[in-house]
Amino acid sequence: MVFSTEIQPLGIYTDPTGCTKLPITAHSLDNQTDAPVVVYADPLCLTPGITVNPGHGAHLPPHSGSFSMD
């Protein structure tokens, strides 16, 4: 689940596969899956990423580009 702004609905990603682009306004990510999620600075999942473990959340760096399931 991705929170962007107070005026936007939460971004819900059901069974994401591969590299998934984040909205430009993404602010925080809540990992409600059973697997780690890796957040990348670029939209192609090529840069080093930060891992968000299951049941945890993280503030996203400004203009985070994408995420993938580990």
Rank of each mutant, 00 (worst) to 15 (best):
N31Q: 07
V52N: 01
L44M: 10
G18M: 06
H63W: 07
Q8F: 07
T5S: 13
D34L: 05
A26M: 04
D70I: 09
S28P: 04
T51P: 00
P16H: 07
M69V: 15
Q32R: 15
M1F: 11
H56T: 15
A26Y: 01
M1V: 13
S64L: 02
D15L: 11
Q8M: 10
M1I: 08
T14R: 13
V38E: 02
P36T: 13
V2I: 14
I12E: 09
G57Q: 05
T14A: 07
D42M: 07
T20K: 14
A35P: 01
P48M: 06
Q8W: 05
P16S: 05
I24V: 14
N31V: 02
T20E: 07
S68Q: 12
G55Y: 06
P16A: 07
P54V: 09
D30M: 14
G55E: 06
P61V: 12
D34E: 09
T25K: 09
H27S: 14
L22I: 10
E6P: 01
G65R: 00
A58D: 03
D70A: 13
F67H: 03
I12P: 00
H27P: 00
Q32W: 10
V52E: 00
S68I: 01
T47M: 11
L22C: 06
S4L: 03
P36K: 08
T51K: 09
S64M: 04
I12L: 11
T25I: 02
G57M: 06
S64N: 05
S28A: 14
S28T: 09
D30F: 15
P23W: 08
P61W: 06
Y13G: 00
T25A: 15
G18R: 08
P36M: 06
A41V: 07
V2A: 06
P9L: 12
V2H: 00
D15Q: 08
P36V: 00
T17H: 14
G65A: 04
D42C: 03
P62A: 10
C45K: 02
H59W: 13
P61C: 03
G18I: 03
G55N: 08
T47A: 11
C45M: 03
T17K: 15
A35E: 11
A58C: 03
T5G: 02
E6I: 12
D70T: 14
A35T: 09
V38L: 00
S4V: 12
K21R: 13
S68H: 09
P43Y: 05
V2M: 04
P54F: 09
D42F: 04
N31D: 07
M69C: 05
P16Q: 08
F3P: 00
H59L: 15
F67Y: 05
A58I: 06
L44R: 09
A41C: 08
A26P: 01
P9N: 07
H63K: 12
